[in-house]
């Protein structure tokens, strides 16, 4: 068994050196392939962002948790093939999350079920607060009418507040293409949301 002889005379607090966080971040991804402690650090740095992105794509917490789990399992399976820094890792992570969400939504039945469940939840949860509920339901329905790629762009742009260059990096596309796809997505959304926009314009 383990032999530790001697009195406990030195207590030492060992913690991650926050002063060298920048350097740590650049090497964290490489270390995470082999070192579970490094992976845990990386996981904690990105869990919230991935979860939020999934919620914003799926409009459902439970499904978002399932997809988030799947995303990080894919990260474990593929991280040793990833070469890049922390920023590139973030893009890579969003790319995995996007593909996982799209796969999740791909099956029509599942998509319809998500829409139905989400609408029911919204209607019951916000029964006393009609306006936000209406808007959320309207947004959800409108977003789900878009192609998965357009949904991704809308979510990254308006919920994750990403620049076009960042979205382009996530999607492996050019900023110009993303710009035109964003425009098309907004045009389509506008048709569904016309009433809301009109109302807002009148208020303004």
């Amino acid at each position: 068994m383990v032999m530790i002889v001697g009195t406990c005379k030195l207590r030492r607090v060992i913690s991650v050196d926050t002063g060298s966080k920048v350097n740590d971040d650049s090497q964290l991804v490489a270390r995470a392939c082999h070192d579970s402690t490094a992976f845990v650090q990386l996981y904690h740095s990105h869990y919230d962002a991935v979860f939020r992105y999934c919620v914003h794509r799926l409009f459902d917490r439970q499904m978002a948790e399932d997809v988030t789990s799947e995303v990080f399992l894919k990260v474990i399976e593929n991280i040793d093939g990833f070469k890049g820094n922390e920023k590139q890792f973030r893009c890579w992570l969003y790319r995995i999350a996007t593909n996982t969400v799209n796969n999740y939504l791909r099956k029509t039945a599942r998509r319809k079920r998500i829409l139905k469940v989400a609408c029911e939840q919204t209607n019951s949860r916000f029964a006393d607060c009609e306006e936000p509920a209406d808007k959320l339901a309207l947004l959800r329905e409108a977003v789900f009418t878009l192609k998965p790629r357009y949904q991704t762009i809308i979510t990254l742009r308006f919920f994750e507040n990403m620049k076009l260059t960042e979205i382009a990096e996530v999607l492996g596309s050019s900023p110009g293409t993303v710009r035109s796809q964003l425009t098309r997505a907004l045009v389509k959304l506008r048709k569904v949301l016309t009433a809301e926009f009109t109302e807002k314009s009148e208020v303004n």
């Binding site: 032999m3 002889v5 030195l10």
Partner: peptide, 8 residues
């Protein structure tokens, strides 16, 4: 944390 003599 414990420091002293000993081994694995």
């Amino acid at each position: 944390t414990h420091s002293g003599e000993g081994s694995f």
